[in-house]
């Protein structure tokens, strides 16, 4: 009996200790990024262009703007496709061949490493256009968003009970009105939640941008152009080894982390279910 209780106690201690230890990297990374990044921050850092190599000062304004532009384009492509396919799978699929194929496509896409989506956008768009372009980056990122939003939309809509649907049918409403106004209305929160999380997720994605939007030292001049982004800037500057650039990479990391974590924390606070 003693042996048994000792084992129990041992497991209790081990699991407590390990759980506490997992808090260490989180706090370490967050504090590290705040401390090292804060020294780089200034208004100038946020609103100006990178300084030419060898000169002091300069900022990352173009990268901040670039990330926002690329994300916005990705949302324009990804959200409608994600929501529409979610609606289709939940309400109109009826076990058709298209829906089975669509489900396979969405399940598989959600497990594909993001670097491969970048290579896909490269092969499909960059090669054909003949130069790096932010459009290809947005396309790659939108493929990350589609499964997240589609699955959450479908699940959200499927929770709407038969009673509510029948109530609506009994009012004589056509199916498309019921689907949009009532079912999607009830599933609204899971659509919004998943869209925000997908936005946070793509804000941190770097690999798909390396071969698509690449980088630029100038303000964005058009959507069909190479474009700077916070993510690629962090990678390039951190890997450069020049101290002044590494400091800028930490500063950019701080901004990126604030963006991503604040969305995650907000979503967690305002929704009970995090998809």
């Amino acid at each position: 009996m003693n042996m048994r209780r000792t084992k129990d106690l041992l497991m209790k201690l081990t699991s407590t200790l390990i759980t506490l230890i997992m808090a260490v990297p989180l706090l370490w990374i967050i504090l590290d990024v705040i401390i090292k990044g804060a020294s780089a921050l200034s208004l100038d850092f946020i609103i100006s262009l990178p300084a030419p190599f060898g000169e002091v000062g300069g900022g990352i304004g173009n990268a901040i703007l670039g990330t926002l532009i690329i994300n916005a384009m990705a949302c324009v492509i990804g959200l409608p496709l994600g929501i529409a396919t979610g609606i289709y799978l939940s309400e109109y699929s009826n076990g058709s061949k298209i829906s089975a194929l669509l489900r396979t496509a969405i399940d598989t896409l959600s497990g594909i490493p993001s670097i491969i989506l970048g290579l896909f956008a490269f092969s499909l768009i960059v090669i054909r256009v003949g130069h790096y372009t932010a459009l290809a980056a947005a396309f790659a990122l939108s493929i990350i968003m589609i499964p997240v939003v589609s699955k959450a939309t479908e699940e959200g809509m499927k929770t709407v009970s038969v009673d509510i649907r029948e109530g609506a049918i009994a009012l004589g409403l056509p199916k498309w009105v019921i689907t949009i106004k009532i079912v999607l209305g009830i599933a609204k929160s899971s659509v919004i939640t998943s869209s925000l999380l997908a936005f946070a997720r793509i804000s941190g994605e770097t690999a798909p941008l390396l071969f698509t939007s690449l980088f630029s030292y100038y303000w964005p001049r058009g959507l069909n152009e190479p474009m700077a982004s916070l993510q690629v800037l962090i990678y390039n500057y951190a890997m450069s080894g020049f101290e002044s650039w590494v400091v800028k990479a930490w500063g950019a990391s701080l901004l990126l982390m604030l963006l991503v974590l604040s969305i995650n924390i907000l979503v967690r606070r305002f929704s009970t279910k995090v998809g």
Partner: peptide
Amino acid sequence: GIMDLLAAIPSVIYGIWGLWT
């Protein structure tokens, strides 16, 4: 919360932390 935030941190930030810290 800890698990969600660890999962949310962008991998490029894990990278810069791993590389320089």
